[in-house]
Amino acid sequence: SPEEIKAKALDLLNKKLHRANKFGQDQADIDSLQRQINRVEKFGVDLNSKLAEELGLV
């Protein structure tokens, strides 16, 4: 269901964000992850996106 997909995506992105902060990645990478999280919260996951591929939806 779209809600489950959204939850999985947010979980994955939050893990990536945590790792980025923990290991001191570029601020641009961290900002990009934050924008992705905001986009998923607002609009859900686009099944044509790279994120959908990472989640194994495509």
Rank of each mutant, 00 (worst) to 15 (best):
L33G: 01
A28F: 08
G56T: 04
S49Q: 03
K8V: 07
S1C: 13
L12D: 02
D26Y: 06
K15C: 14
K6R: 12
K15W: 08
L17T: 00
L55Y: 02
R35S: 13
P2F: 15
L47R: 05
I5M: 11
I5S: 05
F43G: 05
N38F: 09
G44K: 00
K22N: 07
G44D: 02
L57N: 03
K8L: 13
I37Y: 05
V40C: 02
Q34M: 15
A28M: 10
D26G: 10
Q25D: 10
L47F: 08
L57Q: 03
K16M: 12
A7H: 08
V58N: 11
S32M: 14
K50C: 10
K16N: 03
E54N: 05
D11H: 12
K50Q: 11
N21M: 15
A28D: 11
L13S: 01
N14C: 14
S32E: 15
R19H: 14
L33Y: 03
L51Y: 06
E4Y: 12
V40E: 00
D11P: 00
D46H: 06
E3W: 06
K22L: 14
N14L: 14
F43Q: 05
K15T: 07
G44F: 02
E41W: 06
K42A: 06
D46R: 06
L57C: 04
K15L: 09
E54Y: 09
D29R: 14
D46Y: 05
I37G: 00
R39E: 15
N21F: 15
A20C: 11
L47Y: 07
D29L: 15
L47M: 12
D46S: 09
D29C: 15
G44R: 00
D11M: 11
P2G: 09
Q27F: 08
S1Y: 10
N38C: 10
R35M: 14
G56K: 06
Q25Y: 14
L33H: 00
Q25H: 12
I37W: 03
L17A: 02
L47W: 07
L33S: 00
V58F: 11
N38G: 07
N38M: 13
A28R: 13
L10E: 01
A9S: 02
A52Y: 08
L12T: 04
D31P: 03
A20R: 00
R19P: 01
S49A: 03
L55N: 02
A52C: 04
S1G: 07
V45F: 04
R35P: 02
L10N: 01
V58W: 10
D26Q: 10
I30E: 03
K50V: 10
S49H: 03
L47S: 05
D31N: 07
F43I: 04
K42I: 10
L13N: 00
Q34N: 10
E4A: 13
